[in-house]
Nucleic acid binder design. Structure first.
Lengths: 396, 396
DNA sequence: CGGCTTTGTCCTCGTACTGGAAAAAGTCGC
DNA sequence: GCGACTTTTTCCAGTACGAGGACAAAGCCG
């Protein structure tokens, strides 16, 4: 089961591996065009990579006018595992070396059931994926948790919504079970990396990624690198105050953004609206299911329910208010909105945009796209795989 | 006048130069302890630096138990010029190669008089400093302007408080006049670099620096590097909204932080309080001088004037509210408060702290110092010199 | 089938770096 | 003051590495 994947011996090899990951198979000649190495040097490094088995030759490339070149690709047997533990569900996916998803499972699960139960579930899902034949063992795994993480150690710290996880040795435990290196990060950081790898943020150096799920978090990328902050809690925007002396929030403060919007707040507001008879649509759904979720509001809104639309617009406006401030502060080149409530789609996006463009200065917003994430549910697992491969494809 | 200062030929040399800058003169042996180079290699690189004249031998070092080593120091003739153009005043300083200030001038001047007038003033001040004999020519100059800057080109862009400066080729013009390389940056970024070089932020990797002068800005340092944003307007926190539908701000929006606090707002509030008879102290000062400034409020407050204290506390609370949000977002290891109004001192600091510690989550604030800048008026010019030397001490 | 282009390999040359040895310059104890 | 020990510096040879040219191999095109 345990499999020691080779690591590149130097930065040149690391560079080549990442090129092959992000650009797919290439000929040696094309590689030569991209890196600043002499032909001999390039040949040597490629040969060494072939020896370690990290890359393989893969037939002949199309001719560029002369002799045909041999194609080089990352060893197709490489497999990365991405795990995304959300507040209320778990995503697990397996990728090929190019970080394309070969198999993906999603299962509802409350993170509050604690690390042991969640791990059992994750391992069961991994087993299921293995059975489908997409992977036997893994060369690396990345896992995202919905709270702050001490990144170098791979351990969650003081997670507000994850009782029992504080200090749990996630990296250590998962590494034991899987027999491969494991990286642990905050789920929003992984979402940002995912969108940077394969989504809307390709080749953007400075952006942030607001994830609106049960709670609200934000992955920050500065200069192409994820910014995690001093204690790993950067991006915790859900508890920024939007209303002095406002609603009580679970964190103990008042007026936090999360007290007004996010999956939990939205569900509660919807139930209240249904109870007060402000929306026949929501009331019917409440009666049918016993409770309401953000998804119900989304469906009701697309069916034209005014109250639901108002809820989304109000929430988007609150989020937009916070984002506007952060845009002034950070001056990103892109803002990505993602997470579970993207089902609310363009209504939400429109009200966020309105608020941001109204409140921030022209220089910062003039050319600032605010868009929905492209990857949806697989953003997190893609980012997890990316994080892992970045680690594996760097000199030991 | 023009003087072509040599540049290091490789990263090793650059590394050595920065070590000598930040740690002062050292022996070759001590340098060897810090860098990971063989003795022979080190000797070669030091010799080359000696040849170029960037460093000089400087007597014998104290013995460490055996043969005494020759000291090496940066060429003492090196001079850096730092210029800090504020909204209402200009600072100019000359530093030695270790970035210690040899001469410093400050002169009131309204930046709105335009780039030509300001440049005349700056050059006159530089001339005066030259006359004192601290420098003949300069090896590099850094200049800070109170608005966003397109950093690579060294050109201000769309500066709200600096009409006439948009697109003015600051780098080009100053470089012509001084005959040396010039770097241009936002004044708050320079303040952050200054505190990182010689102030409270030494060896802090992630922090930000809130400058409360006429307006309010914020220098951001992530991973030891200044974050300037996509269009160079990062840190523009003065126009973050603190009060929906609040006071009209000069920028056209409502409820901006700057509409409530900062030198300009504070002066206006003080005059209003004096006019309405809410403070005898302020009224007396208004009568004596015809107008009030933030400094008057500071003096009145330290004399025990309740209204002035209230003004400061209210303002600090507003600033704290914004900082609290940014702390949650960015999770810095330190927050520095600086700028003209630091005369308000600990009253201001206390109310900022109260607000931040109350509003942000424990993980982010648990070990978060919020302190006044150490360098006061010379933070900007020190940062300017640092920026310049960083550029000069990097491979060409 | 013969020129032309591209690709891959081989080989040599110059250079940069390492690590040991020894010389130079001190310190310290007796 | 002298010898043993340290530290610094220089010198030197051995080595590894990379650049770049030459040439062979492979393929396109007329």
């Amino acid at each position: 089961m345990r499999r020691m994947t080779a690591r590149p011996a130097n930065t040149h090899q690391a560079r080549l591996l990442r090129l092959l990951r992000d650009g797919g198979p290439r000929s040696r000649a094309e590689l030569g065009d991209r890196v600043d190495l002499s032909r001999s040097k390039l040949a040597v490094e490629v040969d060494r990579l072939l020896e370690t088995g990290l890359v393989v030759a893969d037939g002949l490339a199309a001719s560029r006018g002369g002799r045909r070149s041999h194609n080089i690709r990352l060893a197709p047997r490489l497999r990365f595992l991405g795990v995304d533990i959300g507040a209320t569900s778990i995503d697990v996916a397996v990728t090929n070396p190019e970080l394309e998803i070969l198999g993906h499972l999603n299962q509802p699960m409350d993170v509050r059931e604690g690390p042991v139960a969640v791990f059992d579930q994750v391992l069961a899902m991994v087993g299921k994926l293995r059975e489908t034949g997409v992977a036997e063992a893994f060369d690396g795994a990345g896992i995202g948790v919905p709270g702050p993480v001490r990144f170098p150690e791979g351990v969650p710290v003081a997670p507000p919504i994850m009782p029992g996880w504080d200090g749990f040795p996630v990296r250590e435990a998962l590494s034991q079970e899987l027999g491969c290196p494991v990286m642990v990060d905050n789920d929003v950081n992984l979402m940002a990396m995912g969108e940077m790898q394969a989504g809307v943020a390709r080749s953007v150096q400075d952006f942030f990624c607001v994830k609106i799920g049960t709670g609200i978090g934000c992955g920050i990328v500065a200069g192409g690198e994820v910014h995690r902050g001093t204690t790993g809690s950067a991006g915790d925007v859900g508890h920024i105050q939007v209303e002095p002396d406002g609603r009580q929030c679970a964190c103990g403060n008042r007026g936090c953004l999360e007290a007004y919007f996010g999956g939990a707040a939205l569900a509660r507001d919807a139930e209240e609206a249904a109870g007060e008879g402000r929306s026949a649509e929501l009331a019917r759904r409440l009666a049918a299911e016993g409770r309401l979720t953000a998804a119900d509001v989304a469906v009701a809104a697309s069916a034209g329910d005014g109250t639901s639309l108002d809820l989304i617009r109000d929430g988007g406006s609150r989020v937009g208010q916070v984002i506007a401030g952060l845009v002034s502060f950070f001056n990103p080149g892109l803002v990505v909105i993602g997470g579970g409530v993207t089902g609310l789609g363009h209504t939400l996006l429109a009200s966020i945009r309105t608020q941001v463009y109204r409140q921030s200065l022209p220089l910062a917003t003039g050319n600032l796209p605010i868009v929905l994430g492209e990857l949806g549910q697989v953003a997190g697992v893609t980012g997890a795989a990316r994080l892992t491969s970045d680690h594996l494809f760097s000199p030991a």
